[in-house]
Amino acid sequence: MGMGAASWIKKHGELTWFLVLLVLVGIFATWSLEEVVSGTSTNYRFGLPLASGVPRPLPNGTLVVNITAYQWGYTPDVIVAKPGQPVLVVLHSRDVVHGFLLKLPSGTVNVDIVPGTLSYVFFYAPNTPGNYTWRCSEYCGIGHSFMNGTVEVI
């Protein structure tokens, strides 16, 4: 019996493994694409750059914030939102490539801000009041570690 299994693996193992992998690739790729196109994936929900993740029309009461990133800070660097309020952030860089990484209880917002192109972030403010810090995630020079801002939920 053991020999039977070994010889089966020997004969069909490689092709089976390859087909299994192909099926897995198919499932993963389809799932990912489906989520991106339908707007349900994590990063889509939180705003794929290029505005493709922004719901249209914007939900009622959406707070729209324009933020400029520069070496080394953001203006404004505070977003004040009500619990559960929809927030749209439009990001623009004045100099080099920066990032915007914000860990929320419901998921992670993470986009790069490329000079010359706007990046869009859309999320619902957490239901728990408090301060949530975002940080620059793309290396942008010696002040990179000190570039951050706060979402104040009150």
Binding site: V25, L33, V37, N43, L48, P49, L50, D112, T117, L118
Partner: peptide, 17 residues
């Protein structure tokens, strides 16, 4: 995380896998 169109994302996703 760059501003890239969806079709590039789909292509890269599948080809990397």
């Amino acid at each position: 995380v760059w501003p890239l169109p969806v079709w590039i994302r789909g292509f890269v996703n599948a080809s990397t896998l």
